[in-house]
């Protein structure tokens, strides 16, 4: 077997693992139950909640990530290494632990103050935003920084000599040139937020019709041994997730083909 064939077969092997897992869902698939579960108020609420929170959390993450990524990519400043390292935190400690840390914070005096005078996070939709934000912002920064690292500083220097202030150069050159990377980073951030479970359940709890996102609903069904219901929700999550990723990829391909 040539190396090329070996490499290609490895990629197919990975595909088969996922394929078999997804196919196995259909062993417990029940057509009528699927539609009943799908159109039930509780499921529809979970879908809406998941889509809404993932979108809001992504917007907040990307809003923080773009300038942070730019700073890390372009400037050498004291504390840069420290910030760069702490971005790994969501990747190295489990989301449950991250959620637990947040809960603990809200039990300290500053946390109590925020909860009392500011926004109530624990067991609310704001808790979901927060949980999804803290688990995704690090990755978001990393991905956008990688995209910005690819763009030579030279373009900004050219813009500066043509009369652009640093901010103008950023908005008229760096942002348009890293647009593709920013979109890709946003999609992955959104997908990660959509599937976020550990931190969300720890901070926002698992209240039906209040903080029950799709992953939490799946956990609740499984915990009550409702296999068919679990299958339905997993299929919904897969369809929304993959469907969105695929759709956005198609769109960006068209968009990038246009600017090329």
């Amino acid at each position: 077997m040539t190396f090329k064939k070996l490499a290609i077969s490895m990629s197919f092997a990975v595909f088969v693992v996922y394929g078999v897992l997804i196919l196995s869902l259909f062993y417990f698939y029940n057509g009528r139950l699927f539609f009943d579960t799908l159109i039930s108020e509780r499921t529809l609420f979970s879908i809406r909640l998941s889509l809404f929170t993932a979108t809001v959390a992504t917007l907040i993450s990307v809003f923080f990530a773009i300038p942070s990524a730019y700073a890390l990519s372009r400037f050498r400043f004291p504390g840069r290494q420290m910030i760069d390292t702490i971005l790994e935190l969501p990747m190295i400690i489990s989301p449950v632990a991250l959620g637990a840390v947040v809960l603990i914070f809200f039990n300290t005096p500053p946390g109590v103050f925020v909860q009392g005078k500011g926004i109530q996070f624990v067991f609310t939709i704001y808790g979901i935003f927060l949980a999804q934000f803290i688990t995704t912002v690090g990755i978001s920064i990393r991905l956008i920084k990688a995209a910005m690292d690819e763009i030579p500083v030279r373009y900004e220097e050219v813009a500066r000599t043509l009369g652009a202030s640093p901010a103008k150069a950023f908005f008229t050159v760096t942002i348009p040139l890293s647009k593709k990377g920013i979109i890709a980073a946003s999609i992955l951030t959104w997908a990660k937020a959509l599937g976020e479970f550990g931190a969300t359940i720890t901070i926002a709890g698992s209240m039906a019709m209040k903080t029950e996102t799709i992953p939490i609903a799946i956990f609740m069904r499984l915990a009550s041994a409702d296999i068919e219901g679990t299958v339905v929700l997993v299929l919904i999550l897969i369809t929304i997730g993959l469907g969105t990723l695929y759709g956005v990829r198609l769109l960006t391909r068209k968009a990038t083909a246009l600017i090329r």
């Binding site: 220097e157 050219v158 500066r160 000599t161 043509l162 009369g163 652009a164």
Partner: peptide, 12 residues
């Protein structure tokens, strides 16, 4: 004076 206020064209 920062580069954008110097009025210097630069062909890199």
């Amino acid at each position: 004076t920062p580069p954008h206020k110097r009025g210097v064209g630069y062909l890199f």
